[in-house]
Amino acid sequence: MVRLAQGKLSVLEEKAADREVIVLLPSDQVSLKTVMLPTKWGRKLEQALPYLIEEQLAQDVDSMFIAIEQPTMVDEKHAIRIACCDKTWLSNWYSRFHEAGIEIHRMVPDALLLPNAQDGEASMIRLGEQWLVKQGDWQVAAVESSWLETYLHAAKVSIVNHFSPIEHAFAGIQWNAQEAEYDLPLAVCAKHLTLHKLTFNQGAFAQKKKQPQWWADWRSGLIAASVALVAFIGVKTVQLIHLNNEVANLKAEAVAAYQEAFPGKVVRPQLLRTQLRSALAQLDGGPETSFLKLTEQMVTVLSEVKQFSVETIRFDQRRNELRIRARGKDFQSFGQVKALFEQQGLSVDQGSLNNDGDFVVGELRVKGA
């Protein structure tokens, strides 16, 4: 906890390292108020709060910073506890701590951390030439020693529980010396940090979330890895889209081929393989089967002979014969094709062959069994 002159902040930098710093604001600069509300506390009331308390402030409300503690109830009515101070004054304190390299975890009025007092009572402790005074649990003051008697009578305090020795006991007031708890003001305040949740670390002065050290050490590597992962996923996504497009095109070609081979049949793309097998089974033993077998053998043969291309194919169902008009590199290519057909047990009649520029054009008649 800190309550010292601004010029001495630099001496705390080393001690404040890796510690939670709680700053005690002088209570003579802070005003605590309980604001009665027309309804339950919510976001709309939070936005309207400055206008609800404008008449209660001695300064322009725009120049004040308002810290909100928590909603409460007063005589079964909704209320909110707030603390106000000059915005420029508070900003100056934050700037000083920042310049000194000290991170503030909480800011709270010093007198608020005194022990709570009952109605008509006050808790007090001496701090320099001032007395910190707390009445109830939400009324505080910092009073010069010369004004103390006047203040206590004006505040109608009849019992004082004091945590520092007092030189002059004023008449009309019961003085209870808490000698067993006499201590330095900061020590007494530190014991009661949990009494209230109030902090001025709100709004524009909210504490920024500190990044863990492991993030600072690994941030660059993790960012690079993330970029690489995103790039990898992007490439794979593009590849997947390309493959899906190819699959769709192949399916369309397969459906078109099936419709051409079996006109009038309904095609179900997801069952195309099953439909094809069924259609071939129905054709088994028929003339279509002979055509398919011959064309299958023809594809096998032509795949082994280079620079030999088929121009036209005709199928004579009655003779179970394929009539192939083709173009080859030379006369030997026709002989090679004829020999390969015959090796598969087929009968081949070769028609006339003619030169056509750099190629030889001719006809083959391939007869099945």
Rank of each mutant, 00 (worst) to 15 (best):
L186F: 12
V235W: 00
P185W: 06
T237L: 08
L250G: 06
K210A: 09
N201V: 00
T199D: 02
Q202A: 05
T194R: 05
F232S: 10
A206W: 06
A177L: 15
A177T: 10
K191G: 07
A180C: 04
P185E: 09
K208Q: 01
E253D: 12
Q211Y: 13
H192C: 05
L195P: 03
G234R: 10
Q202K: 04
T194C: 08
F200T: 00
Q213H: 12
K208E: 00
L243R: 14
G221A: 11
V230G: 05
G234W: 11
E181M: 09
T194A: 09
E253Q: 09
G221E: 08
A190M: 09
L193T: 01
V230K: 02
L240T: 15
A248M: 04
F232L: 14
G234Q: 04
A216L: 15
N201Y: 01
N249I: 13
A252N: 15
A216C: 12
A206K: 08
A187M: 09
K209N: 09
R219Q: 14
H192Q: 09
R219A: 14
A256Y: 00
N245Q: 15
V235F: 06
V188Q: 11
W218T: 12
H196Q: 04
Q211M: 13
A190S: 12
A228D: 06
G221T: 14
I241A: 15
V227G: 07
N244V: 03
Q213W: 12
D183K: 05
L222W: 04
A231Y: 03
N201P: 00
Q202D: 05
Q178F: 02
H196L: 01
A248F: 01
K197H: 07
A257H: 03
Q211K: 15
Q213G: 09
C189R: 09
D183A: 15
V188I: 14
A187C: 07
A190Q: 11
A216Y: 10
P185M: 02
P212I: 07
N201D: 02
D217F: 13
V188E: 10
A225Q: 07
A257W: 02
A228G: 06
H192Y: 05
R219E: 12
Q213N: 13
E246N: 12
E253R: 11
N249W: 10
E246T: 10
F200H: 01
V238M: 07
L229Y: 11
A224H: 14
A225G: 08
A187F: 07
E253A: 14
D183G: 13
W215S: 07
A187K: 04
A254V: 01
Q213F: 13
K208S: 02
Y182N: 03
L229K: 09
G234C: 03
W218L: 03
F205C: 00
K209C: 07
T194G: 06
E179N: 15
V255R: 01
A231E: 02
K210W: 03
L186A: 08
A187H: 08
T237R: 08
T194K: 04
C189F: 05
Q211E: 14
E179S: 12
L193V: 02
F232W: 15
G221F: 11
P212K: 00
K236T: 12
E179D: 14
A187D: 09
K208V: 00
F205N: 00
K210P: 01
L186C: 09
Y182G: 03
L229D: 10
G203T: 01
V247S: 13
A224T: 12
Q202N: 04
Y258W: 01
I233C: 15
